[in-house]
Write a protein that binds this DNA or RNA. Structure first.
Lengths: 248, 248
DNA sequence: CCGGTTTGAGTCAAGGTGACCTTTAGGGCT
DNA sequence: AGCCCTAAAGGTCACCTTGACTCAAACCGG
């Protein structure tokens, strides 16, 4: 083991994981937030997260925190590393670097406020930025990055299906895209694209009978992770570029 | 400040940055490797990198290491965070989490072996995986991820121009794509795509006269960071999907 | 049985792509 | 000069995808 006091200027730091857990509920994109029970930012909303333990990978820590804070086990949702945030002043207690994770899941139950957690709740992402109370730490920036990542992933990958509880219909899937991108899509063209894509949707043979309208075929998630050809947002959207280091 | 001895199970960790610095030299994609001068992995090739210092962001640490190990200042190349690697056993000395960065630059000079560096040199990436001596730590996996990221970025962004010293020709740019993707591209169709893309290339009005062939128009990098429409690798390539956390 | 609603299939024009060809602008050689 | 070689630059054409749109199918409620 390294002597933690040996190298001045290379002091050890604390590493945490923070989770941006997104779901679509009631036609709105929502994020799971907790209310902080300790200083700093006592009482402020924040992303769930916590310290990485000894002998644990970041992925494992993210999965553990996911279960502790929401009661959801990671098997049922999509989890992916976003990036690390390292501003020296981002935590007033000292040097804390955090690795953010993006989690996408189907309409999850109301979170069972976990062990150390104060109230955890779903909040529409629109309310987070408009709301009167800002997020703790640099979590607003993390959430912003996570949203853009999610929107971008919908174009090139099949993760949108992670938002849908199986089995689901093409309409369910389209609804995810419309809510996450914030724009209506042509139902017919959307169907053509996702059903032509290889191994994206596998039909179950069953049908779902809604209260109104023609019954819809049901599908499960296919093996494909990449969506070819990509399903691009119509060209008139202004998309932020990739995150790049700009010196000075 | 946090008392580093306070929380058992939440021990502080060391955080490093590792750099995957890619360039195209002599028609081959090359990566900058150092030879380790300390245990563990003494004498093994490794990615350049080092500890994050107090009061420094990860981006700043990456830029600093870039200069220290290669003598290149970050202003002249593209630098971007890749992801964090956190396997508890990845460093035998103890708990070291590393954040990998991807750096792309034009045919750089032979690295001026930096302060603490033992010999730093350019190595064709093909030789790294085929070669008899494996990379230190988990650097082979990091390099693999970086390569896939670079190849993918060429499709959707304008970073390929970061490989070219300004001013450059359309042929120079195409050469980058061919080397990084490892496949020939149709010169005519390639030109059509990149010249049609908005703000990708800005003509200087000058021409370059090669030893043989018609002189080519010279360009500089435009303001665009995203490449619309994307320049996709032909469909017959098998592309690895995004990195996802798969529990258990 | 009729109107409403959503699914699912089809049509068509516009634009992008891949394969291919031709012309242009040099250098080098006889 | 004239000819060949090379690479750039521009053009053609068939094919495919996309976006906008229309229309039939299948259910429900009254």
């Amino acid at each position: 083991m390294i002597d933690v006091t040996a190298k001045p200027g290379h002091a050890p730091v604390f590493v945490t994981v923070d989770l941006v857990i997104l779901t679509v509920r009631q036609d709105v994109l929502q994020v799971l937030l907790i209310e902080r029970g300790n200083e700093p930012y006592l009482g402020f909303p924040a992303l769930p997260g916590g310290h990485v333990r000894d002998g644990e990978t970041l992925d494992q820590a993210a999965l553990r925190e996911l279960g502790e804070e929401t009661g959801v086990d990671g098997r049922s949702l999509h989890l992916e590393q976003l990036r690390a945030y390292s501003d020296p002043g981002r935590d007033p207690r000292g040097r804390v670097i955090t690795v953010a994770y993006l989690a996408l899941g189907p309409g999850l139950p109301h979170p069972t406020a976990g062990t150390d957690a104060t109230a955890a709740r779903w909040v529409p992402v629109a309310d987070v930025f408009d709301g009167p109370v800002p997020l703790a730490f640099d979590h607003a920036g993390i959430l912003r990055d996570a949203l853009e990542r999610a929107r971008s992933q919908l174009e090139h990958t099949t993760v949108a299906a992670a938002f849908c509880a199986e089995p689901f219909t093409v309409g369910d899937l389209r609804h995810i895209y419309e809510v996450v991108w914030g724009m209506p899509l042509d139902p017919s063209n959307f169907r053509r694209k996702v059903t032509n894509a290889d191994s994206f949707l596998v039909p179950t043979g069953e049908r779902r009978h809604p209260e109104t309208g023609r019954p819809a075929a049901l599908y499960r998630r296919g093996a494909a992770r990449l969506l070819l050809p990509p399903l691009l947002r119509s060209g008139d959207v202004t998309r932020p570029g990739p995150v790049v280091v700009t010196p000075h």
